[in-house]
């Protein structure tokens, strides 16, 4: 607490960042809500299908979307990277004081920053592992395959293998990561309405808060259902073996696809099988 830090910190030359300060901050807010937040809803809802619906079908649908790579890059990786870089920079410029001023809103504020960092780490590892195939030196050896070489459904099985791997650490990582994402998004949605000037009065902020809590709880329930299913799903030996062989890059023993798992798939899906 020295007084030698100048009270009127020398304003830097207006850099490009400074000139677009407002725009960047608003884009930071928007990027969290629209591409990232909306994707989160779809993702968690899709996961929930493991428990109650046709997860395999949903996942195949997403992976067969046209121009998927552009959707991913423009709608996900760029916004997430942008949101994360700015978010971390903003967090470094703050001084959380929830211990000294332990108001509920102040804990909410601190938690928003903590969950932002946790969510970013989680999303990075999650995407790197399951989408880009990083192995992290074998520590996170959790392969992800949609289906076998003949279209055998593997979406739930490989999610289950991922979650049950190195029990309970991956599971704990998922729970922390997913709930960090859910909290960060629901709370961000609440504060964004203040920042943008949608909820002007305290009463309006409270009403919007009820909506955000409801949305957060719904996502929490979806996530709990999916995590429960993946953590308890009995992976068949054949599925495990198939994934192991695919992971090893070896070809599977030739077999009619409808015999492999006794889970026949329509021919048009089978021919789209991964190489």
């Amino acid at each position: 607490m020295s007084a030698d830090a100048s009270p009127n910190a020398q304003a830097p030359q207006p850099s490009l960042l400074a000139q677009n300060h407002f725009l960047l901050r608003r884009l930071h807010s928007l990027s969290g809500i629209v591409p990232i937040g909306v994707f989160l809803i779809f993702h968690l809802f899709t996961n929930f299908q493991m428990l109650v619906g046709n997860f395999q079908h949903e996942v195949e649908f997403i992976h067969n979307m046209p121009a998927l790579i552009y959707i991913e890059i423009l709608g996900l990786w760029l916004p997430i990277g942008f949101h994360a870089v700015l978010g971390i920079a903003y967090t470094l410029g703050s001084n959380p004081n929830s211990i000294q001023y332990p108001y509920m809103d102040n804990w909410r504020y601190t938690l928003q920053r903590v969950t932002g960092i946790l969510a970013f780490l989680f999303i990075f590892v999650h995407g790197a592992k399951l989408r880009w195939g990083f192995t992290f030196g074998g520590y996170l050896d959790t392969p992800f395959y949609l289906h076998g070489p003949h279209g055998e459904p593997l979406a739930t099985a490989s999610t289950a293998i991922a979650l049950q791997h190195a029990f309970p650490w991956v599971l704990v990582g998922y729970v922390v990561g997913v709930y960090a994402c859910v909290y960060h998004w629901a709370n961000g949605l609440w504060t964004a309405a203040i920042s943008w000037g949608l909820t002007l009065s305290v009463a309006a902020q409270r009403r919007w808060g009820v909506f955000c809590v409801g949305l957060g709880l719904a996502l929490a329930v979806f996530s709990a259902g999916a995590i429960y299913k993946a953590a308890t799903y009995p992976v068949a030996d054949q599925q495990r073996e198939m994934i192991r062989l695919m992971e090893a890059g070896r070809t599977l023993p030739a077999a009619p696809h409808d015999k492999v798992l006794e889970l026949p798939l329509p021919a048009e899906e089978a021919h789209e099988a991964a190489p």
Partner: peptide, 26 residues
């Protein structure tokens, strides 16, 4: 502003600061 809302809780004059923040935000 990071919407921690401490300001409104400690203001001795009970000024609706978070409403002002939202109003200027708008």
């Amino acid at each position: 502003c990071g919407n921690a809302q401490n300001c409104v809780k400690v203001c001795p004059k009970e000024i609706p600061l978070t409403e002002s923040i939202a109003a200027i935000g708008r």
